[in-house]
Every structure is written in C-alpha cells, then in structure tokens.
Write a protein that binds this DNA or RNA. Structure first.
Lengths: 210, 210, 210, 210
DNA sequence: AATGAATGAGCGTTCATTCAT
DNA sequence: TATGAATGAACGCTCATTCAT
C-alpha cells in the first residue's frame, strides 16, 4: 500500500476515494459500510472524505454518477453508427451484459444498492439511474428500427424491452456467480439460443400463441 | 386507530408485526427502518417485537419466510395439473407478474432488500430466496416440456429462463410505478406481444439470427 | 418439577421464591439476574413475585433478612450458655465457618452481593448485615472473657476480631472452592494449628514482637 | 472545571478514564454505574470510552489490571531484600493494610466488585485478582521462613495465611469507615496487639488449645 | 493538505414493572 | 390465585460529522 500523508492532486485523491467507495459499498451495502471503512480502503483518513466529498450521501451519489457514466459510455461505444441496426442491438446488448458481468461492484452499487435505499434518498441518484435506463432504451429503439427507418416497436415498448434487458442482466449476475464455469459471453450465447428455440417452436406450432 | 394496550393472542400480534415490517422495510430499506418504526406501524411498543421475534434480524428473516411462502403458493396455485404445459407456463408467469405487481412491498422485501444486504447477512434469508427461484424454475421446466414429455430446454437453460423472468418482473415493477395507467395484465400483454413481434420478424427475415 | 398453577398458601410460595432468589442472586449477581430468572427458578410466573414481594429490591432485601436470620441462629445455637467461654469461642467459630462453607449461596448473597451494591442501596440490607456482625461480635466478646468474668479484650477489639473472623471466612471460601479435597473442618483445623505455630514461635523467640 | 473539547494525547485521556472508572465502579457497583456516568466523571463524552477502551467490560478489565499492578507494586516495594524475613512480613502487611485503607476505591473495584460479578465474567479479571493473591502469598512465604532458610509453614498454609490477611483487610475496611477516628496504622497496631494477647493467654494457660 | 481527537444523536436491546383476564 | 400480554425507561454501543492542530 502507498505510504501515508502523501500530497496528491485533488483529482487523483477523489478518484481513489470513489474507487474505494464503490468497492466497499458494493460488498457491505450502503448502510453497513461506514465512512471509516471507505477511508481505510482508500488509504486515507476520514476527514479527507468530508473535505473532498462533503458527506456520506454525497460520496454515494458521486459513486452512482461515475458508474452511470461508465455504463452509458460502454453502451454508446458499442453502437456503431454505420452498422445495420439489428446487429447493433445484439452487439450492444452483449456489451452491456459483459459490462455488468465484468464490473460487479459498479453494478451492485448502481443498481442494487441504489434501489434498496429509500426512494426519496436522493433525487440525484434516481436521476443518474434514469440516465442508464434511457441510454439502454435509446439503444433498443435504434436496434429495432427497420432498415427503412420505420419503427416496429413503439417508444413505450422499447422502454419495456430495455427494462427487461436490465432486469435480466441484473438477475443473471447472481446466476453467473453461482456458476463460475460460465462466462458472460457463454451466457449471452445461451440467452440468444433460447430466443431462437422459442422462435422455432412457434414456427413448428409447438407453442400456441397465448 | 384502535385503542392501545389491547390484549391480543400472540398469533394475531405476530402477524400484525410481520405485516407492518414488510411495509416498513420495503419503503425505508432494512437499515434505514428502525425497529421503533415497525412497532409504531404495527400499533404496538418496541419491546413486543423483541418478545415475539427476538431481534431485528429475526424479524426480517420472518418477513422473508412468510413472503417467500406467499409467492411460492401463488405460483403453485396457478399451475393446474391437467392443463397443457405451455398454457400453464403462460398463465403461471402471468400469475407471478401479477403477484409482483400487486404485492410490491412483499417483493421489495423479498428480492431487493434481501439482496442489498450483505450476502452473509443470514443463511436463512438466502435459503428462502432460493426457494422462490427454484419454484419458478420448476414452473418453467414444466411449461417448456413438449406434449409428449420430452424436454426442449435443459435444466440449466430453464434456470436461466426463470432468472430472466424474475429479473424482468422486478425491473418492470419500477416501470409500472412510473406508468400508473398500465396494469399488471396490460403489461403482460405487451410482453407477450413483443415476443410475437420478434417471432414475426424472424419469420419475415427482418431479423437475422445473431 | 411441580405442576404449574398450583394454589399454595402464601407462606409456602414466599419461601419458594426466596429460596430460588438466593440461589439465583448468588450465582448470577443481583443485577445480572432478572426477576424472570428468579420466577422461573421458583417455578412460578413473574407477576407472582410482584404480588408477594413487591419489587426486585424488596425481594433481595427479603433474601438478606432470611439469610441473616439463619446465620444468627446457627451461631447462637452454637454458643451454649453453660459452657466455658473459651471452648465456646472456638466451637462457635467452627460453626460459623462451617455455615459459610455449607451455605455458599446464602453467604454470597448476604455478604458479597449485599456489599457490592451501592451502599445506599437499602438501609435495610445494611441493617440486616449489621445484625450478623453484631452477633459474631457478641460471640467473640463472650468467648474472650476470662473465667472470672473480666474482659481481656475491649469492646472495640472484640469488634475487630469479629471482622477478622468474617473476612477470613469469606476469603477462605474461595480457597475452599479451589481445593475441593479440603473440607470446612479440615480448614478450621489448619487455621487453629497456624495460630499455635505462631504462639510457639513467639515462645521460642523465633518471632520478635513487631 | 476544565473547558470541554480539549485535545489531549491518548495516553492522558486513557488514564483519566480509568481513574474515573475506578471511582465510579467502586461507588455504584459495576452494573449500576453506566458508561455515561464514567464518561461524565472523566469529563468526556461517552463515545471516547468506546474509542479508547472498546467496551464496558474492557473498561472494567483495564481498571482491574491497573489496580492489581498498583497493589503488587506497593507490596513488592515494601519487602526489602536485606531485611530479616520476620520484620519483612510485618512491614509488608502493614503496607498492604495501608494500601487498602488509603485506596478504598481501588480495593473495592479490585476485590469486591470483581468478585460480585459472575465468575465467568472475564477470565482476565480472575487472572489479575490471582496475581494479587499470589503476591501476598509469596510475601507470607518469605516472611515465615526461619533465619536459616527452613520453612515453618507449608506452601498450602502460606496460601491460607495470605487469604486470611486479604479477607481481614477487606473486612476491616468497613470497620475503618465506621470509625473515622482510627487510622490504618492504629488498626494494624490493634491487630498485632490482639495477636500478642492471644500468645500471652496461651502462655498463661488461660486458653486451652482447642 | 491532512489527521488525531472528540461528540450529538440515534439505534438495538433489555428489564423491572403493570394491566387485563 | 395466577398469568400472558404489554410498555416506559434506560443502557451499551456505533457512526456520521466536526474541531484543533
């Protein structure tokens, strides 16, 4: 660990703190984790957290903001403008799943911890979470447009699909943890295949439309 | 409000407490809610909670157990033995979605709160949550069997489908809260239609297999 | 254990309670023991204690009174009026030691517990303890009178001797507990012999008067 | 009173706390005294006690350790290596009595409070108390050796003598409290004289060997 | 810039005590 | 007579937060 009492530029210190906070909040939960725990994990003293971030709540908010930025960025980077939209939808979903699988701490803070706290906890937290949802929705909208540009799913349905994707990703993370022999990619493969199986069965008349 | 200091049999009081606890834990989160809050919501004094349930943790565990029982029971009741399995799958899923939508507090405690607390919080809580997942998995397994009895999805894939259903239901609950004009049933309708749209597009070649 | 809900005369119930209380207070200490513990040990319900004794403090006081009576009685019974006083002193001391050794719970409540509570705990407790001290003092006074009736130790010195006897008995009880192979009688034998050794050494000049 | 919120080095504060705790525990008893009481007596706030000492039990243990050190040190300092053992015994006893008389709070905590708590309270407390007993026993052993070096009392009897000394000192402290006109020294004088009286009477045949 | 020292406020828990039956 | 049901009050302990250096 780095030696104590180092003078570091504010920006660096702040990143250290948020890194530590994401890790700690993810593993212990927002309330169980103490500010002391975070400071210790960041290798600094408690008052530093207050000097830089102001309060535990603001520290948590900062975590949410940064992690929301990271997901949004990852998803955006996966949608290539020139690409045929359908492929874009699938590859973007793959990127999103992979992000969730590869950044469990980030996701746990952003999604599970943020939701478990009282809804009125912070308007800002809700807003940041919304940005992620909106981004995924936008991705779905883009990916479900026909080549000609017409929509085949309404805005509202796109939202629903986005939520399903998010919920599925969140829920499957637990499953991944319990099955270490699977990877994020193999999981996506399975999900896609399952969709195709469904399609097949409809085609063959195995499944009657409900 | 009923007059205080009523002498009620233990069984009744205990149910009142758990009812109140589910409500309070769901809205404030496990750590934010104090035992006093729960007692007040149940119309009794704090020591009663300890006399009957022993500790905050045991109170929470009791909530999880009871709510897990309720979901499992609801899903089981929806699977009718004589029915063709495919219909069974759809109707059972519908029942599950409706349960989640109609019992937001129960679900929030059972799923969101239970997950947000550190995994080591209580073995029992994890076990109770598992029972729900297993039940849904069993339902999916039953519903994805061909009429002849052969399986078309592996055990593992059935688990994945169950998780997707759970995650989707959980995630869509937020969406329902933000769209009060929709009902659980109309939501399920949308989800089913979206699935069919996907099928259509595959059939027409709009969507290439990924 | 006796069957519950028996109607017993007050006197009997009260004795049961005090018996139980002495046992419980002695083993757990006054504050650590709860009224519930005492009630349970007596095979009755908590409110009974309050109906009969009124409060925890009064229950404790009752214990002290009864046990003080018992010591006083035991010591008195050991002092036979006709007996030459010197023999009386020794035999009474022996009786006192034996009582302490044979009634550890009583003594622990009467002496150790009563002293450890704040001095202002109860005037009555102090008074009851005083009765024991006074009784032992009287015994010492009687035992240190010359055959002719003249005193060889002052009232004040008799008090001191009594205190020494009490303190020694109390302190040696621990020693007895740690040496189960010794009995109260063998211990008294040792103490007496030690006194004689001291005398011998004075006589032979081994020990210079301090 | 000193102004609040003084920043003092840990070592100093810790001593203040233990000083206050000894005083408070001695006067109110371990259970009756609250940590708040101790904090107040030390002129600090409650959390400080926990930051430095960790728990009420550890605070009490710290008191026992420190006071045991003090008695042991006092007794050791009184035994001068060159001195003839017999004189050593008497002077060391005198020092011990004086210590007990001059440090009533210390003694009450070390002996009375420590004993009144359930034996299972803390192994450490029992161990610390043992150190005192052992020290006094060693002193008695040293003081009852003949000039030539031979023993005249067995190890076991030395232990008994030590217990008697301790018990007598403890018991006589109450007597001293009730007779403020006496001092520790005058009390020791009385005790020694009483021993001599006994010797005289044996010599003159007034007291028959029991 | 950085931290050891310090505290106000609150929570989980217990217990002596009372009420209603 | 006897008890299950119920509570007010207090205590041990923690933690977010601030002050003084």
């Amino acid at each position: 660990m780095v030696s104590k009492n180092q003078r570091l530029p504010r920006e660096v210190r702040e990143r250290q703190m948020i890194d530590a906070a994401v890790r700690v909040f993810s593993r212990s939960g927002y309330h169980t984790a103490s500010v002391e725990d975070v400071a210790e994990a960041a290798g600094i003293s408690k008052p530093m957290v207050y000097i830089y971030l102001g309060s535990k709540e603001r520290l948590f908010t900062a975590c949410i903001h940064r992690e929301a930025d990271r997901v949004v960025e990852a998803v955006r980077a996966a949608v290539h403008p020139g690409e045929p939209p359908e492929l874009g939808l699938w590859s973007a979903l793959r990127v999103f799943f992979r992000f969730v699988a590869d950044n469990r701490d980030s996701w746990a803070v952003l999604y599970q911890q943020a939701r478990a706290q009282s809804a009125a906890f912070s308007k800002e937290v809700a807003a940041a979470r919304c940005r992620v949802i909106d981004e995924i929705t936008a991705m779905v909208v883009a990916g479900t447009r026909l080549p000609g540009g017409e929509r085949i799913v309404s805005e509202r349905d796109a939202e629903i699909l986005a939520r399903i994707a998010i919920g599925a990703a969140d829920s499957l993370i637990d499953w991944l943890l319990e099955h270490p022999e699977e990877s994020a990619d193999s999981l996506v493969e399975r999900v896609v295949n399952l969709a195709l199986v469904g399609v097949e069965r409809y085609n063959t008349g195995d499944i009657p439309p409900p």
